[in-house]
Every structure is written in structure tokens, then in C-alpha cells.
């Protein structure tokens, strides 16, 4: 039904009647040969597909990293095991206050006595990374009001017990001080021991 008539015409000598008649006199060997003949194109296609699939698995075996596989749980731990170790080897950027104390003992001990005692050096000074790479890049914090206001500006969302000021000028007035030009938080408060 799906073949054109043109094709059918070329096969006219193979009408079913003629076909069965001939088959009656076939030897077993001939039958096997005709069976192979009818399946010839299918075998070829099957070989082609098999070759493609085999090729796929050969390429796959070469390209999948050795440590890839199920590491315990298939659902959540089917991965390249080396990946976790590679990530663990990344250098840490923040070093922690203990590291700073080695060179900056006075500031470190001053800090320990006061309101900022719980703070890490890098909270205000930023990450240690550049400083550490023998560039001696300074880690100074700008002494601006804004640097302190990041934590201490009054916000309704901040816990009420946390020390906050509405504005620098209001705070100065509240403390009965005169607002002088160039005055910042650090004029009165040592950031390492503010209170």
C-alpha cells in the first residue's frame, strides 16, 4: 500500500502464485539462501546500528573521567569524586583574627577588651587575600562615618538593643559636643576599642 505502482511493476514476475510454486521444489539449502537473501538488507542495517552503538560506548569509555560514578547514593551522589577534592583545594581568602595577631598584637589585644571584642579583623578591614600575597597592600578601613554607619545607622529592621544612631550630627549633638569640620566617628571612638 505504501509502494508506488512503478515499483510494483518491476516485481511483476514475483507474483505470490509464482513464488509459492517455485518454493515447493526448493532444496533446504536454497531455502536457507533465500531466507538470507530476504533478510540481507535488515542484517546490513542491524550491523550499521550495532557499529554506531559500539562506537558510542568506545568513545564514552575514553571520555568519562575515571573517578566518575556512584559514590554511595545514586540519587544524590552520582558524580566525579575528584570534583570535591578539587574544590577543597581552593585557597581560603579570609584568614581569621588569629592570623592577624601574629603581626598586629597591640590592636588585637586592644580589641579583646572592648565592645568590638567579638569581631573579626576582616569584618571591617575586608578580606586578607591581597595583603597576604606579599603585596603588603594596606587593609586600612576608611575612617569615614559611612563605614561605621553600615552597622550603626538606626534602622527599624535592626534589633532594638543593638547600638544605633539616627545620624552623625544628631549623635554629636546628643553627646553635647560641637560638630567640627573633619570630625568623624573615630575622632572620639577608637574603632578597636570604641566604648
Amino acid at each position: 500500500m505504501i509502494f508506488d505502482n512503478a515499483t510494483r511493476q518491476t516485481n511483476q514476475n514475483n507474483t505470490p502464485a509464482a513464488y509459492t510454486k517455485r518454493q515447493t521444489y526448493r532444496t533446504r539449502h536454497e531455502e536457507e539462501a533465500s531466507f538470507m537473501k530476504a533478510y540481507d538488507h535488515i542484517i546490513r542495517f542491524a550491523l550499521l546500528i550495532t557499529a554506531v552503538i559500539a562506537g558510542f560506548f568506545i568513545i564514552r569509555a575514553r571520555l568519562v573521567p575515571e573517578s566518575f560514578g556512584v559514590q554511595g547514593s545514586y540519587s544524590y551522589a552520582f558524580y566525579r569524586a575528584d570534583s570535591a577534592d578539587e574544590q577543597a583545594a581552593l585557597p581560603a581568602v579570609h584568614q581569621g583574627s588569629a592570623h592577624c595577631s601574629a603581626c598586629h598584637a597591640p590592636q588585637a589585644s586592644l580589641r579583646q577588651t572592648n565592645a568590638h571584642a567579638g569581631l573579626e579583623c576582616e569584618t571591617c578591614h575586608g578580606s586578607f587575600k591581597a595583603h597576604n600575597n606579599n603585596t603588603k597592600e594596606r587593609m586600612a578601613v576608611s575612617g569615614s562615618v559611612d563605614a561605621c554607619m553600615l552597622c550603626h545607622a538606626a534602622l527599624t529592621a535592626r534589633p532594638a538593643q543593638f547600638p544605633q544612631i539616627d545620624s552623625f550630627s544628631a549623635h554629636v549633638a546628643q553627646q553635647n559636643e560641637t560638630l567640627l569640620p573633619g570630625m568623624t566617628c573615630v575622632t572620639c571612638h577608637d574603632p578597636h576599642a570604641p566604648m
Binding site: 566518575f68 559514590q71 551522589a77 552520582f78 558524580y79 570534583s83
Partner: peptide, 8 residues
Amino acid sequence: VGATYVSP
């Protein structure tokens, strides 16, 4: 592709 996973 198993590119994200839960580590041990």
C-alpha cells in the same frame, strides 16, 4: 549529567 551532587 551528574554535575551537581551531595558531597560525603
